[in-house]
């Protein structure tokens, strides 16, 4: 029972998109949604992961703190 509860709290609600296998034009488009210019491919992947982790982690902790 406790394990189940823990899993509910720690599992992220949205899985991270697989940025590493995305084509460059798709990565460009994704990043332009965040106002970021075209960068070398690897850097675009890292930036998208960073943005995803930051936005999701923050909204989770805020929801938890508010409830």
């Amino acid at each position: 029972f406790c394990q189940e509860r823990e899993a509910l709290c720690t599992t992220p609600p949205t899985p991270m998109p697989s940025y590493s296998i995305m084509e460059t034009p798709v990565l460009k488009k994704e990043l332009s949604r965040f106002g970021v210019r075209t960068l070398p491919k690897q850097q675009m992947v890292l930036k998208l992961k960073e943005i995803f982790q930051y936005t999701h982690q923050r909204s989770d902790s805020r929801d938890a703190a508010a409830s």
Binding site: R33, G35, V36, R37, E50, I51
Partner: peptide, 21 residues
């Protein structure tokens, strides 16, 4: 400003902001 509004991460310097459109 229009790209800054879309960017969700905190920027630590103007140099770092160079990645923005």
């Amino acid at each position: 400003l229009s790209s800054l509004h879309k960017y969700p991460l905190p920027l630590r310097s103007g140099r770092e902001a160079r990645i923005l459109q």
